[in-house]
Design a binder for these strands. Structure first.
Lengths: 365, 365
DNA sequence: CTGAAAGCGCTTACAG
DNA sequence: CTGAAAGCGCTTACAG
């Protein structure tokens, strides 16, 4: 049989079976003009009988058309935030028939570089990137060769590509501002990894808000150290054992919020807590009145839109979209999980609507 | 310039620049034997200067080697369970340098069929599938043509492919059995979509356990209807308003558990609840003593192992791995989230260890 | 309406 | 150690 090495029939096999030339078979199957209906029918039948599946790789090689694949490179595909991003990206990409190739770099710049290389060799048309920390200037050469790159959630170091981020300074500032407004004066900040841009930005906002409120920035109330990852619960517990303990806490990083909640609960403390993105069903938690700052869906959608515009040929300088943070009061969201899980695309309306939601109940003392 | 249409330099460009033949350039860059070191050096330099990236598509076309890509087709990539599966699959695939192409069918059989077709045309070597409901016999032709297919979490209708599932009948049976052991006699069952295999299986287990305990199977205590999705909270509330209300509840489906918790909390009821897979941080919830049946990581890992074996040439009849369910007591998991999120690979040890964990506290009345 | 030729970017035999 | 030829599965011009 004229089967290819991979065991699949080729267009040549179909053509032979239908008794036509290669080109006619190609035309018939691609629905091009200029094929007699009877001929086309014979070709389609041969194709069906053989179980023919056009080789998309060969096709794009021959035609020079783009591969219609987009790479999505994130820190971890299993992370809830990233999963939400992925879902949105897929949905926006869907109508365009673009395939999604995913890979996780685990915040390791070297792994990111290797992933980018692999995806480029596979000739993805575009890369959607939640950048690992560190220099990514090697992307410049790829962009010059036509690769579309859009960064998401964090800026891109060393290249000027399109980015979509959230104003995390404002996110930190507002959370603290609301705590202050509720009467808190001792506000803690939690973040294991200050190398993460989002954490660093939220910390800046935290400091700005304290300063604006003329509150002292007590370093004892700030946990911002990679090393703490070893025993985070002990670190949080130590912080809470401060002689003048915090009455509110801002948790700026994935998992830090959960750790904080566990410790707070175990010690039987009553703190107001603000967390970011990674908390599920906050209204069902032991201590509901959290602030939630979320944005996976908005970020994913906005970044994918930029990407599609570039694929459609948009030129011009890199665009940097900064989205306002969204605040969701977990207590207010009771029975309305969609507020947490599905932020509307019209983020301005949302942030305006939710920004006035009541927050903390004031110091527990 | 000798650039390709896509704006990228080709191997021919590199060869020309290095002043060698195409074949020598190929050999040098692929690290094959029989190239003078000086020649190889010149080629590598030319490659670097040009920013050459070998076209993997052309390479696998020419060499006839597999494309080194695996398709992961799930109901929804943003779903927590699926995200956990994806993460595990990626991790197991990683060392083999297999790329992951993901797509969601949303439990729509037609979409699944279209996705499979697209992935086949892209010549993925294998498909990891969380099957949508309905017939999938069309996969037989692809399998015959060399596609490796492994189903995951649900069986595959119409084809005999490798599958990895959890014994959901046992999962339903055991949850109910434990409720019964704790003194419950009125036990409710929740599941919106009986077309989902996992839900149907858990329902079977539920009925078996009631029967074994000689408890009547009261249809009033079973919510198993697609239509209820419209207003699930009202449906759950109605169930709880039964004159002889349930004291325990088994929630067999994604999101049903959350809904149940919301309603239970809103009504101020005290029910023991068993949920599956989709609950985060159960130890932090208002009413901690849940049973949790989980398995994303085990399922993903086991399925990927089967897939790799097939890619390595394993022949023989389809294998059907059925994993025992894992029970995690949320109260017992307090401070030990890994019990919930990372089930060990040695599931036998786990299920044995956790099966004896204390469950419910008995009827609240 | 149909087809023979050349080529996409690479590799596999086969020679030297 | 190096290279010219043929081919992977398809498409794009170019002819009839």
């Amino acid at each position: 049989m004229g089967r290819t090495r991979t065991g699949r029939p080729t267009l040549a096999d179909v053509a032979a079976r239908a008794g036509v030339s290669l080109k006619t078979a190609s035309r018939a199957l691609n629905g091009e003009y200029g094929v007699a209906e009877e001929t086309a029918r014979r070709v389609r039948e041969a194709s069906r009988e053989l179980g023919f599946r056009p080789n998309h790789l060969a096709r794009s090689l021959a035609s020079g058309r783009p591969s219609a694949a987009v790479g999505l490179v994130v820190s971890s595909v299993s992370d809830h935030f990233m999963a939400a991003v992925t879902g949105t990206v897929e949905r926006v990409l869907g109508p365009r028939d673009l395939q999604l190739v995913t890979a996780s770099h685990g915040d390791d710049p070297d792994r990111q570089r290797r992933i980018v290389r692999t995806l480029v060799e596979r000739r993805v048309d575009a890369l959607l990137l939640v950048p690992a920390p560190g220099d990514a200037s090697y992307l410049a050469a790829e962009i010059e060769h036509g690769l579309v790159v859009v960064a998401l959630d964090r800026p891109l170091d060393g290249v000027d590509a399109d980015t979509v981020t959230v104003d995390n300074v404002a996110a930190g500032r507002t959370a603290v501002g609301r705590f202050v407004g509720a009467g808190h004066r001792r506000i803690a900040f939690l973040g294991w990894d200050p190398a993460l841009w989002t954490v660093a930005q939220r910390h800046v906002g935290y400091l700005e808000a304290l300063d604006a409120a003329r509150l002292p920035a007590d370093p004892d109330l700030v946990l911002l150290d990679y090393a703490l990852r070893d025993d985070p619960e002990a670190a949080v517990e130590a912080l809470l054992s401060h002689p003048d303990p915090p009455t509110a806490m801002l948790s700026a990083q994935h998992s830090a919020g959960r750790t904080a909640m566990r410790v707070i609960r175990r010690l039987g403390r009553r703190l107001d807590l603000a967390v970011y993105d990674d908390i599920h069903d906050p209204d069902l938690l032991v201590r509901p009145p959290f602030v939630l700052v979320s944005g996976a869906q908005r970020l994913g959608a906005a970044a994918t839109e930029l990407l599609l515009e570039r694929l459609d040929g948009a030129r011009g300088p890199a665009r940097h979209v900064v989205l306002p943070p969204v605040y969701v009061d977990a207590a207010a969201a009771d029975g309305h999980e969609q507020l947490v899980r599905h932020e509307p695309t019209d983020h301005h309306a949302v942030s305006a609507a939710r920004a006035v939601a009541p927050l903390a109940t004031g110091p527990a003392s």
